[in-house]
Amino acid sequence: MTLVTLAIATGFALVLIGLLGALTDRNILRMIVAFTIANTGVNLVLIGVGMLPGRTAPILDEAVSVAQAAARIVDPVPQALVLTAIVIGLGVTALMLAYALRLHQTRHSLDIRTFTELKW
């Protein structure tokens, strides 16, 4: 198993673990943690897809000159996408935590079963 497939397999496993936690756990805080785990898994898969075996980081310096860049570096586009995804993921997590805090203030509970207004 190469590094690339290992990274992608780990990413998929993290997505599944995160979804399992988000769907089965009753505690809102643990669900938020599960969502961040799934988020990390997606990022790992994206980075793994952009990874080309035997190549180095897309930064041009003494080690990788401009002329040989195309033959030596990995795909920089997924890395840029993942940078964006991490930042947005952090924003989403902060929002979820803020809502969890408000829910706990109003209902004094973090158990998802206490919140039945939207249930039919």
Partner: peptide, 21 residues
């Protein structure tokens, strides 16, 4: 990716291609 690898240095002058993107 090949376009970025070949032209980033001349287009933007940035050594970090991810930053240039």
């Amino acid at each position: 990716a090949r376009y970025y690898a070949d032209n980033t240095a001349a287009d933007t002058g940035a050594a970090n291609i991810v930053t240039a993107i």
